[in-house]
């Protein structure tokens, strides 16, 4: 089957909405698990933008990049969740405002 003809603008605006939502979540959640989720959302929205652009120009590159983003997301999540475990173990909390060893 062929793809649906949708204005690229609309798909991109959806991606932007998702991205901004994820960004807002990143900024206001203090729980590190939610922060990771917000990151996933943002990565996903970027992937959406790439795929949409790829289909708009009838090129496979968009999906290739999407797959690379997937790889990045997978690696990031695996390390990130490992860090979550460590944070819980060391600070006895998941609140990132309490885990502030980076304080200058």
């Amino acid at each position: 089957m062929e793809g649906v003809v949708i204005p690229l603008n609309h798909v991109l605006i959806v991606a932007a909405l998702l991205f901004v939502t994820g960004l807002a979540g990143l900024m206001f959640r203090r729980n590190v698990i939610f922060i990771l989720m917000a990151l996933e959302v943002m990565l996903n929205s970027a992937g959406l933008a790439f795929v949409a652009a790829g289909t708009a120009w009838a090129e496979a590159d968009g999906q290739v990049i999407f797959m690379l983003i997937l790889a990045v997301a997978a690696a990031e999540v695996s390390v990130g969740l490992g860090l979550v475990l460590q944070i819980q173990r060391r600070f006895k909390t998941l609140d990132m405002d309490q885990a502030r060893r980076l304080h200058g």
Partner: peptide
């Protein structure tokens, strides 16, 4: 902040040329 960013992005995106998706890959 996110709303501002969104508005900015929408403004930028709305100025793009009319491109249609739909090619099957």
């Amino acid at each position: 902040l996110s709303a501002i960013l969104l508005v900015e992005m929408i403004i930028v995106l709305s100025k793009m040329s009319d491109q249609q998706t739909g090619a099957l890959i």
